[in-house]
Design a protein around this nucleic acid. Sequence first.
DNA 1: CTCGCCAAGTTGTATATACAGCTTAGACCA
DNA 2: TGGTCTAAGCTGTATATACAACTTGGCGAG
Lengths: 255, 255
Amino acid sequence: MSALQKPRYQQVKDLIIGRISRGELQPADRVPSENELVESMKVSRMTANRALRELTDEGYLHRVAGSGTFVADFRAGSHVLEVQNIAEEIAARGHGHSAETLRQSLQHARGEVARALHVEQGTDVFHVLVVHRENGLPIQLEDRYVVADFAPDCLDQDFSRITPSAYLTAIAPLQEAEQVVRAAQPNAAVRKHLNMRDGEPCLVVLRRTWSRGRPVTFGRLHHPGSRYELTGHYTPPGTPRSTSADVVELEKLEQ
Amino acid sequence: MSALQKPRYQQVKDLIIGRISRGELQPADRVPSENELVESMKVSRMTANRALRELTDEGYLHRVAGSGTFVADFRAGSHVLEVQNIAEEIAARGHGHSAETLRQSLQHARGEVARALHVEQGTDVFHVLVVHRENGLPIQLEDRYVVADFAPDCLDQDFSRITPSAYLTAIAPLQEAEQVVRAAQPNAAVRKHLNMRDGEPCLVVLRRTWSRGRPVTFGRLHHPGSRYELTGHYTPPGTPRSTSADVVELEKLEQ
DNA sequence: CTCGCCAAGTTGTATATACAGCTTAGACCA
DNA sequence: TGGTCTAAGCTGTATATACAACTTGGCGAG
């Protein structure tokens, strides 16, 4: 019962978010002005202002001083992350991709997972463990957690046909992503799944994505160090792309 | 020359950020309370509150109701994956940065270096080898090559005072950048310079940048796997972010 | 009809005030 | 000494008010 009372500014935010997610408000539509919210929700203008300002910072809205507040249209850019979808990356190399689902279950978030997803310990999350192979050779072990209420039908998906990444972009528009890359020694299980030599290092990518202002998913992506590297390309806004950068051939590092 | 007055809450934010990046405030240190800011900066409490609240949302601070506001000690995010000046990164964590130049010489490009820089074998390049330390602990071995005619005064620079990255941004406007990340076993020399355990993996970043249509520099950045991870933060285009100028500065790519 | 100007509406910021809830240090008592 | 209670200080939120800057639509003069 208790249902501890949410702050008023949060109630205003929820109202707007609700209308957007129900489709009542479409991108570029006008959102109630601060003064209209003052009347309809009986809050002070500063409270309405905070709600709209935070929703703007979170990427939902777009404000124009003197004009109004509008629903932002954020397109889930396909090339936002260079390595968003391992299947596409492999296909781009002209190789064959296959995936094997090792685990697919409903769990309770604990420890690192709960912290990463900003949920209470014990909250329902889906856990998916998938091995991706390039021309039959294991290239990525995907260990992914998804907040359950974002993806009610997660257990019904066949992740050997649609990758978890592709599924997630479909259900939750990408708003923000965070990526942490580190080198590590894999444990025995990871080494076995990825068919790695003893002592071979592992490239580990921790990735979180946000949608609608909340973390949606947290994934640990393990790659065998001898067969995989992460590439990124950057062009500052407004500069014409000159020569497409051909990949540096890698050799022994002697210095 | 009215240099376009910043909002008061932004001035407060700048003050705090400045103290952190100059090292006057260390992680877990206590930040002035709202009421102290009211007195010292002659702002209202709501303005101080907004400044501290936004810095908290941005990950700089950590607040405990009833206790106080403190410098956050994780501070990983906020930089794009196409990363940054190692000195600034360390400063943002509130730690001390130092650099030691191991080598600084004029060489002839050969093998991988010549190919990466798109120059003929034997072309003049400057070679710089620098160890960067965070609070005295080696955190990056920077092995960098610069095309000579871009940087005639490269040998005169003191890279323990200005980082190679900062120097290069000064002489060559960034046009394009490429980055390759991999996990590897370091050789003995690298392991020694970075004070790494036997068998500890290494995070290696290969980075190339272009200016005026030509490759300028090629660097191999070795990081000890146990002490370093690369973090990236993405926001899709069209997602309006906080428009303050210092955010743009943070996201600017470093050479 | 067109141009320019003005008024109304909207966002952006700033302040003063108020109260609730939490934390901590120190006073006080057994 | 050790436990308890209280007061001070802190953050979190909410409101009323005020002014500045910007946008837009409409009105009136030419």
